[in-house]
Simulated scan of single mutants.
Amino acid sequence: MFTMHVDDDVELSILEPKHADALFELVDRNRSHLGMWLSFPNKTKEAGDSAAFISRSLTRMADGGGFWAGILYKGELAGSTGFLYIDQETGRTEIGYWLGAAFTGRGLVTKAVRKMVDYAFFELGLRKVDIQTAVGNGKSRAVPERLGFTKEGVLREYEYLNGSHHDRIVYGLLKEEWGKF
Rank of each mutant, 00 (worst) to 15 (best):
E177F: 02
V135F: 04
F121D: 10
T81C: 12
F24N: 05
E25W: 06
A52P: 14
T3I: 13
K45Q: 03
E123D: 15
G179D: 06
E176S: 14
L77E: 02
G179W: 02
Q88Y: 11
Q88R: 11
D49S: 08
R146D: 07
A134S: 13
H165Y: 14
T3M: 09
S39Q: 13
D21T: 15
I14E: 14
R168C: 11
F149V: 05
G79V: 03
E89P: 02
G75V: 00
V27A: 07
Q88M: 07
W37P: 03
V143C: 03
Y160R: 06
F121C: 15
L77R: 00
G35A: 03
L77P: 01
L174E: 05
R127D: 12
H5W: 07
T3R: 15
Y171G: 09
Y160E: 06
E11S: 08
F67Y: 12
E11T: 13
F121N: 14
R92I: 09
R31P: 14
G82F: 13
D9L: 09
V135N: 04
I54F: 03
F121H: 13
F24D: 08
E89L: 05
K139T: 06
D28V: 02
V27L: 10
E46K: 14
V109D: 00
S32P: 01
D130L: 15
S39F: 10
D9Y: 01
F40L: 06
A134W: 00
S39H: 14
T150I: 10
T3D: 07
I54P: 03
D118P: 08
R29C: 12
A20G: 08
T104Y: 03
G163L: 02
L108D: 00
E76N: 07
K74C: 14
L174H: 09
F181H: 12
G138I: 03
G153K: 04
V109Q: 05
G66P: 02
K45Y: 08
G148E: 00
G96H: 00
E152C: 11
L173Y: 03
E177P: 02
H166A: 09
S55L: 04
Y119C: 10
K151V: 10
A112K: 12
I131G: 11
G163K: 04
A112T: 13
H166M: 08
I169R: 10
L77V: 01
G172I: 07
Y160G: 02
T110N: 04
A142W: 03
A101M: 02
S32V: 04
Y73C: 05
L72N: 06
G79R: 01
L12R: 13
E94C: 13
A47W: 06
T44A: 04
L12Q: 03
L155H: 07
L15A: 12
G35M: 07
S32A: 09
E76H: 12
K175H: 06
N30V: 03
Y97M: 05
R141L: 08
Q132S: 15
A78P: 11
A47L: 01
N162P: 05
K111Y: 12
I86K: 06
L99N: 02
E145D: 01
L174G: 07
R168W: 05
L124R: 14
A51P: 05
E94I: 15
F24G: 08
W68P: 07
E123F: 11
M36T: 14
I54W: 01
S80D: 10
N162G: 06
F2E: 14
K139V: 13
E46V: 07
K175T: 07
L173E: 00
Q88G: 04
L77G: 00
M4Y: 03
A134V: 08
